[in-house]
């Protein structure tokens, strides 16, 4: 699977054509994973999924069981900040937040709850619809991302997002995490830890929640009927935030 995908990517699907000089030869060498003299391939030992393009057969989603989410716990929030290198500047109005705990209270009944809210990775994301350059996009596997190479910083996606999930980078940043590039003048939001997913790991918040939190967050493939998340959403009632908008978010909540 791995080498097959790689072959296809390197030759057939390649949009890259720098010069006619010796490039195809170089590519063929690379594709065959043979080490020509002077050519060293680094890191070929990574897991197979890192080299494969994502597929729409998968739809990543999350089920958050609020019955196990402690009101005072914000392990998911701090794990996210640590993983993605989010640092505050002491300016709460402009500091970025990819995931936050929201306290809700029903004024009629007095019921109250605290729940984590992040990008809901909608099937029909308004942020993607409104983005003029197509920088805001949905990956084949359902993860909604900002391509910061084409984001012009117009913030229209922030106007369109019903979940207040996006932040604008208001200042110059330094020493970002290599796997989480982010910079001044572009919009960003929860990536569902796409770099982890691409190497078969779970999002940092989910990991932290099961390690030190209440184990409320379950991550998995909503398209796979055999996955744990699919079984749970099939057997128990779950809710989406603002389901009335018809956006079909990939993040679902139990006991909301």
């Amino acid at each position: 699977m791995s080498s097959k995908t790689k072959d296809k990517k390197m030759t057939g699907n390649s949009g890259f054509d720098p010069t006619r000089r010796s490039f195809l030869a170089a590519m063929a060498t690379a594709a065959g994973v043979t080490l020509a003299p002077g050519v060293v391939l680094y890191g070929i030992s990574r897991s197979s999924s890192a080299n494969a393009a994502v597929s729409s057969e998968v739809r990543w989603g999350m089920l958050i069981d609020l019955g196990r989410c402690d009101n005072g716990c914000d392990d998911c929030v701090s794990a996210c900040a640590k993983e993605n290198g989010l640092r505050g500047f002491g300016r709460p109005e402009t500091d970025a937040q990819w995931i936050r705990k929201v306290d809700i209270k029903n004024p009629e009944t007095g019921y109250s709850k605290s729940l984590p809210v992040m990008c809901q990775h909608c099937e029909n994301p308004p942020c993607v619809d409104v983005c003029p350059t197509g920088a805001s996009f949905k990956r084949a596997d359902g993860i909604v991302l900002v391509n910061k190479h084409t984001c012009i910083g117009c913030r229209y996606c922030m106007m369109a997002c019903p979940y207040k999930a996006r932040s604008f980078v208001h200042e110059t940043l330094e020493d970002q995490k290599p796997h989480a590039p982010r910079g001044k003048g572009t919009v960003e939001s929860c990536t569902l830890c796409v770099h982890r997913i691409d190497s078969d790991r779970q999002p940092a918040c989910v990991e932290a929640c099961s390690d030190t939190g209440g184990g409320a967050m379950l991550f998995g493939d909503l398209n796979d009927p055999e996955s744990e998340i699919s079984k749970r959403v099939a057997n128990y009632a779950s809710q989406q935030i603002r389901a009335d908008l018809g956006l079909n978010p990939g993040v679902r909540y139990r006991n909301l």
Binding site: K6, K9, S14, G15, F16, P18, A30, L41, Y42, G43, I44, R46, A50, N51, A52, A53, V54, F137, R139, A140, D141, L145, N147, H149, V194, H195, I197, D198, S199
Partner: peptide
């Protein structure tokens, strides 16, 4: 060109070969 090519594959398609 290599970087740009890799960048688009990584961001858009999730292909993360290190090379």
């Amino acid at each position: 060109e290599l970087l740009k090519h890799q960048r688009d594959e990584t961001v858009l398609e999730g292909t993360r070969s290190d090379q």
